[in-house]
Design a protein around this nucleic acid. Structure first.
Lengths: 242, 242
DNA sequence: CCTATTTAACTGGTAATACCAGTTGACAGT
DNA sequence: ACTGTCAACTGGTATTACCAGTTAAATAGG
């Protein structure tokens, strides 16, 4: 009783996995605001009942959401929705990316691309409020310099650059920059901030930032742009000889 | 028997999860080349024995690797390592990103940032081989135009731009561009390529590409850059009135 | 001997269950 | 009112089982 071979082409039955359905529904609930950041997510057992699936299936979906950085799972506590955060994802992928030769230098180059573009947008979008926040970051860096505190100096450094990105009002540029910074920190010392040990280097960094700030204060955006370029070139040299 | 309160700061006991250990070891094996793209990964049961953990733990790790796009799992077959591919990840995250207002237009702006930067790099890095491949893409687009085949025209369009990115020899720019294109396709029609219906629009696109190609052929990179800028502005208008 | 079919031994997908280890909050003893 | 205890959660992990595909070896047919 052999089945005769036919030429009929059946469309392959969609065999999507259960965890994908759960993921979809979950993402949709987040998108439409049914669940908001900070909200507690029902327990795995409840979800399993609601979706009419087993707990392992729910767990796989939650695991993915955790790695993607949409939820935070506390052992014993529950799971909570949070603002998307690419940190966990980057932690996993970073080792693979950095197996490429000179990936770190390429990252610095790319950072220049982003920041220069942000400077171009500043002319149209920067507000007085933005300038004030830039001033605060600058002040923090100055204090760190005086106190010879490299740790908080590094934080202020990042804050300064991030404020510029925020002032450009470009969500994408900001997010991309966050990824770049995060990746770069992974490159240097496994996730910690990049700290300048030498005092004169930190001083140079501060001076650069100050000049950029002054240029922005006078709305001289083309000069600010030039300053950013030379500033980042300096940073690159600093990193290269490290 | 009350415990006296002390000022001692105990370091929080590391309570990393099993799947994270597995992930780490796996990524490390990929990084060092113990496993190479195309290789078959041991079955879940084998891995469970090797790592001395249960199968669910292994499955959670594999699930993450699948979403990240490092491995491909075939039901009934096995799991295979592949070149990292951000597609699955983007599919999940895209709906969340596009809940932002005008995210699609921001994407197009960002694309301009990337491509303009690529053009600047072309002067130093483009080879004759690259130019030849650009010509092939251009030719394909021309054929699609003649045959009035919007589908393959769209593919040739993407190929042309991607070839430019490749010619810039910047790995990061290329990968970022892939993400942008993928995200944009998700925006328009849930993952399919963007197709130009109107013939005159497709013709305009081809003309632009041709001019860019000619400029590059004559090594007039500044002109090529200008052309790319105006080209992408045109694309944005095309998309805006869609 | 070769080919085609069958079949058995895989694979991942899912479910059900159990137990451990944290967290939390109510409740009772002080 | 405070404190310590305990019970009822939570997620983390392991075990087991079964189903549904895939694959390759064994076998029957030529």
């Amino acid at each position: 009783m052999t089945t005769p071979k036919t030429d009929i082409n059946f469309k392959p039955v969609a065999t999507r996995k259960i965890y994908q359905y759960i993921l979809e529904q979950f993402v949709e609930m987040v998108r439409t605001g049914v669940i908001k950041p900070g909200d507690k997510i029902p327990s795995e057992r409840e979800l399993a009942q609601s979706f009419h699936v087993s707990r392992p299936s729910v767990r796989e979906a939650l695991r993915v959401l955790e790695v993607i950085g949409i939820i935070e799972i506390q052992s014993g506590g529950g799971a909570y929705l949070k603002e998307m955060e690419l940190g966990p994802f980057i932690s996993i992928v970073a080792p693979l990316l950095f197996s490429r030769e000179n990936f770190d230098l390429e990252l610095l180059e790319f950072r220049e691309t982003i920041e220069v573009r942000a400077m171009e947008l500043l002319g149209a979008h920067m507000t007085g409020e933005d300038l004030k926040r830039l001033g605060i970051s600058l002040e923090a860096m100055h204090k760190a310099l005086e106190a010879n505190d490299p740790e908080s100096g590094a934080l202020a450094d990042i804050a300064f650059h991030r404020t510029i990105l925020e002032a450009s009002k470009s969500y994408i540029l900001l997010k991309v920059m966050d990824v770049v910074v995060s990746l770069f920190e992974h490159a240097v010392r496994g996730g910690r901030s990049i700290v300048l040990e030498k005092h004169e280097d930190a001083r140079q960094l501060y001076e650069d930032h100050r000049n950029i700030y002054l240029a922005l204060e006078h709305h001289d955006y083309s000069k600010a742009r030039e300053l950013v370029v030379s500033h980042l070139q300096m940073v690159r040299q600093l990193y290269a000889k490290r």
